[in-house]
Design a protein around this nucleic acid. Structure first.
Lengths: 248, 248
DNA sequence: CAGTGGTCTAGACCACTAT
DNA sequence: TAGTGGTCTAGACCACTGC
């Protein structure tokens, strides 16, 4: 977040509006003033304001409907590769009931490895909320999850009973606009993984690690382990910098 | 490729230009007429033409430089998750020498499974070029590759000696502008995989399958198998439909 | 310093859609 | 039918960058 030079008018406005959206000063569903009024309010022409609003719409932050107005979009539709992350929705999409069983929860300092993978600032010496649990699809274990949460970004997490709340879904509700990075690798099931997922020792598993951030600050680091043969990750790619069109 | 309704002026022009680019009627490096001239040539205002050219630039298809003009971009920078696909570049980035050994090459009809995964049209009854080989990083086996190529989209492939050309790199040169879809899963190494990659039987491997298309027609279907522990796939995600900013 | 792209405006007409 | 966003124009000024 370095640049603070001469920004063009529409860039300035875009940045300002985007800030309002991600900080939820304009929460999802919020109706913006009409384009004409916004243009007048900010002292720009309607074309310029239109450019800003169109760009934010194109990027998915706003929804515009004729005759109705402009609204902040409901945070949704993670990009294709992220879909696997909303396990609750994924399991439901299979027509199965989702259940999450918490197996461990405590407040502790981050390990050096977590510090590295979550890119936790050195000055940041606080503790993190560590969770472990298993996702079930019906009666079948579906996925093993280890997660740490940054209490500074989501203080409410300390008071949540994650026996009745799925951590991922809860976080997505609290902090809907996030960026992140996945790392995917394959591992052989060790004793604990095999037991929890009902696999044979050594069976191939997919491990997806995801660091989630907002405004360059880490929010959560989660590692999920899936039975390898029964799971796939699908991801669209486009050549230059084009949009990942939403896959329905 | 369904819509053929009333398209706005700039959408029509954008589509027309994009077609010229992907078909290489405007090859990489080609200089377009100046914005003013294009506007006049197509009978639109400069603002409208600017919208088209700006959008194509934003999407990475064009490069614009003041005083010099507008040029078709050099195809590059696959999105983050695709980077693992250009194995030749990846190996070189590790400071190792890359070598590809072809183990099988023949022309045959696609299997039903390939037909399904590559989404080959039913009417399409031709044969496909099937390749198998191993990528090496230095002396170490790096990745196992199985690939089929659509001869209708890349007829020149039939005359290439893939003992001296890496199929993926060659294809990328021939058909640079492509879209595709990855499927990632984890498998245990069977006897053949273990032998070719120098692994123990049953070791976890990452299997990446990629279907590449251009204008809704499949170009190639490739399955690559990597040693699981030593390989990772990294992928950025963004919430709505925002750009995957190039990671440098 | 000249030529290109980058930006902005004021005004206009149109398309869609809730009512 | 009225009100909103979607689009387009003609003209203008500016910033950057090769020459």
């Amino acid at each position: 977040m370095k640049p603070e030079k001469t920004r063009s008018l529409h860039e300035t406005l875009l940045h300002r509006f985007l800030t309002k959206i991600v900080t939820q000063e304009w929460p999802p569903g919020f109706q913006l003033p009409f384009e004409t009024n916004l243009a007048e309010e900010y002292g720009v022409s309607r074309m310029t304001m239109n450019k800003v609003l169109s760009e934010l719409t194109r990027q998915g932050y706003l929804v515009r409907r004729r005759k109705l107005g402009t609204f902040v979009a409901q945070p949704k539709a993670q990009s294709a590769i992220m879909e696997i992350s909303d396990i609750e929705a994924e399991v439901r999409a299979l027509g199965l009931e989702h259940r999450f069983t918490l197996t461990a929860q405590r407040l502790r300092p981050p390990t050096p490895d977590e510090r590295r993978r979550a890119i936790i600032a050195d000055g940041d010496v606080g503790e993190v909320l560590a969770l472990e649990g298993v996702h079930f699809a019906g009666a079948t274990p579906f996925c093993l999850e280890e997660r740490i949460i940054n209490p500074q970004m989501a203080p409410a997490a300390l008071d949540v009973d994650f026996n009745h709340e799925v951590p991922g879904s809860w976080l997505l509700r609290q902090i809907p606009w996030t960026l992140g990075r996945h790392t995917i690798s394959a591992i052989n099931a060790d004793r604990e993984v095999a037991r929890n997922l009902g696999l044979a020792l050594g069976e191939a598993c997919l491990r997806v690690t995801r660091r989630t951030e907002i405004s360059d600050t880490w929010v959560t680091l989660v590692s999920q382990i899936y039975p390898g043969e029964s799971h796939q990750i699908v991801s669209q790619f486009t050549p230059p910098g084009e949009d990942g069109r939403r896959a329905e």
